Simulated assay, not measured.
Amino acid sequence: MRLSSMADYAVVTMSAAARHCGGARVSAAQLALETGLPAPTVQKLVSRLTAAGLLRSVRGAGGGLQLARPAAAISLADIVEAVEGPIALATCLEQGRHDCALEPCCSVRPHWPAVNEALRGALAQVPLTRLAQMEVVA
């Protein structure tokens, strides 16, 4: 399993936003500069992350972006889901998806919800505070 580039970039963007001390506001342009990501990509991510309630946008003088809640209360799962939707290894459980030829006789399908929940649970255990650290702590 691999994260999409957009999910990866969302984690990088949120980590950069979290490094701004005390909830200081930062512009999308500044996040693009700090992360090395293209500004249009950061703008798209900011839009999704704001819609998901992870970032807050403040307009006007002194405006900018800031985390919508404390970094410790935002998990890797929250960020990935903001960009990718629900975390799932198999698409056969998605509403309206019936494109698998094995669906009528699949013996594994009933087990995917437990696998998906385990994966989401593991990602939910990684807080943004840890991702925002400049040094890796084992």
Rank of each mutant, 00 (worst) to 15 (best):
V83L: 10
A10E: 08
Q66E: 15
L3N: 05
R130D: 05
Q43S: 11
C100W: 13
A82P: 07
A73I: 06
S15M: 00
E84H: 10
E94L: 13
S27H: 08
P86Q: 14
L37W: 00
M6P: 07
V58C: 09
G36N: 04
R2W: 13
Q43N: 13
R59G: 04
I74H: 08
H20W: 14
S107V: 15
A90S: 15
S5M: 06
A101H: 15
S57E: 13
L102T: 14
R97S: 12
E117W: 04
S75N: 03
C105Q: 13
E34P: 00
G53W: 11
V136I: 12
D78L: 03
T91V: 11
A132N: 00
S5F: 10
E34K: 00
C100K: 12
H111L: 14
A88V: 04
T129S: 09
G121K: 07
L45N: 02
S4P: 11
I87D: 08
A73M: 09
P40W: 04
H111M: 10
H98N: 15
E117Y: 03
T41C: 04
A68E: 10
P104V: 13
G60M: 05
V26A: 07
A28N: 07
Q43W: 03
A132M: 02
T91W: 10
E135G: 09
I74V: 14
L123K: 04
Y9A: 14
A24T: 13
S47N: 07
A39T: 09
L123A: 04
L89K: 05
S57L: 08
V136F: 14
G85K: 05
G85E: 06
P127K: 01
G96F: 11
C21K: 12
P86S: 14
I79S: 02
C106G: 10
N116V: 03
R2K: 15
L33Y: 11
A32N: 01
M6L: 13
L37C: 00
A29Y: 07
R130I: 03
A118S: 14
L93I: 05
A7G: 11
E84D: 15
A124T: 02
R56V: 12
L65N: 04
L76D: 01
Q125H: 05
G22V: 12
A124E: 07
V12A: 08
L3P: 01
R59S: 09
